[in-house]
Design a protein around this nucleic acid. Sequence first.
DNA 1: GACCGAATAAACAGGC
DNA 2: TGCCTGTTTATTCGGT
Length: 581
Amino acid sequence: MMVESATETIRTTPSTQNGVSSLSSQSDSGGREGSSNGDTNGEISPVDLLHLQQQQALQAARQFLLQQATGLSSPSSNEVKQTPVQVPVSVAMMTPQMITPQQMQQILSPPQLQALLQQQQALMLQQVSSTPRRTSMCIHLMHLFKECEEGTVTPTEGWALVVYLAKSEEGGETCRDCLGPTDLFSSLYPIFCSSSHEEHTGSHPLYGHGECKWPGCEALCEDMGQFIKHLNSEHALDDRSTAQCRVQMQVVQQLEIQLAKESERLQAMMTHLHMRPSEPKPFNQPLNLASSASLMKRDTEAYPEGLPHPPTSAATPITPLRQGPSVISSSSLHSVGPIRRRNSDKYCTPIASELAQNCEFYKNADVRPPFTYASLIRHAILEAPDRQLTLNEIYNWFTRMFAYFRRNTATWKNAVRHNLSLHKCFVRVENVKGAVWTVDEVEYQKRRPPKMTGSPTLVKNMISGLGFGSLNASYQAALAESSLNLLNSPTMVNTSSGGSLNMLHVGHDDVSSTVEQVNSNGSCSPGLSPQHSHQVHVKEEPAEMEEDSRPVSLMATVSQNLALPGDEREMEEELPAEELE
DNA sequence: GACCGAATAAACAGGC
DNA sequence: TGCCTGTTTATTCGGT
């Protein structure tokens, strides 16, 4: 980073140790026109100059921020006093080596930047106005302005030079025809600093659709250059702009207050709707904006009178995800036509518990369940008394359990058939009453995605989904509970089924799956019954039959027929075997 | 950008 | 003939 370079320069270049004063004297003694290209700096290179001045600017900024954060304000910045700007302490605590002008812009709001600039200006003004010579400075700045417009000087460099010039020009002559320092800085700062953002993004938050987005402006600007000129001329740092900025700040504050109120209301609503005394939810966590918005949208759109409550986990997502299993996107509401969606979070969804808790919801609300077809089919089959269903029974389960699947039947039925055929975890069995479909759990586990325990990315995402990087305690509890379940399970160390169940997971889905079976209601814990298998069609494994070509499919199918106590079998199915590998 | 999993669409075949 | 079931392929999309 430039700041780092600047710091390094200061540390390693003795000639720059004197800082501004030494530079000023050199600048004063040389020609003014060449300041920006450094031909008057003697042993100090322009780069050093830039770095040093940027460093100084940042020092001043940091000082300002510290003052802001600690409630102090510079004695020389009355305006800042009048309009105390809240600066994050985290920002204020940054060392100069940690923050760059670009970062400053990203971190600080426009009012904060303005306040910061005002203090800088006050300091500059104090310095510059104390001397009678300003002509050369004006020339320099105008030259710099031109260079910046022409692109020969980057905004960052430009701003550093502005700072440098303001501090170094102590011997110039007064130029009544020139702009005062404040005006100059007002004009130059947006170019040198604000445009540094544009430099990277090619856009400006105050410019869009060919017009200025400054509140109440809407001036037409053909291109960015014109807009920049307009911005500098019409929205320079003056009383009017400052006042508008304050108004905007208040607007934002009002919105934030409103958001807080609505969030609180939402929280109360969901608490009221979902927190059953007998069913404490340990997974409370702050809602993110997206989920809140989705929930609010759903609350207002998908719940006509008489409809059941929304899913419990919508209010209390069990897994910290970008989109919780029950955080239903707007597109899933009354969606018409094919809507592709990737339910990546499904893997963290305890489908059984989710369905058990929100059964009525899904039955009545036209909401697409946040599960894959495969997981739904599997659940349907496992829910069946014999753990086997005909295709038509699967259809019926879908339509019975989900209002969403009572329409577009051709689409989702095709998808069901497609999934049954595609996934080797679904085994077609010729039964006396026709063909039925069963689940090969081993294959199902196989086809599961990368495990959370082994996927730093997933873990990272989950953690990041919590907001500030702290692993949600509730989720830890869930993990702990899951682990406990696993550890307490007598089948944890028992890789039965002919040892084929070595594909155990403690992945996201498995956490849920473990809970899933524990939480399953009666219908979700079907007893085992002998399969009346006359003919088993084991699907040919695709090329991925790979080296691990144990006949697990048959084994698993057979293992399903083993008469195990229901609960234990449930546990066994969900055991994360990979942890044992 | 490659890769992968999932969803979707569609073609096709066989059976009833 | 039409529908259902089952298989397969292709495409698209989203996430990693």
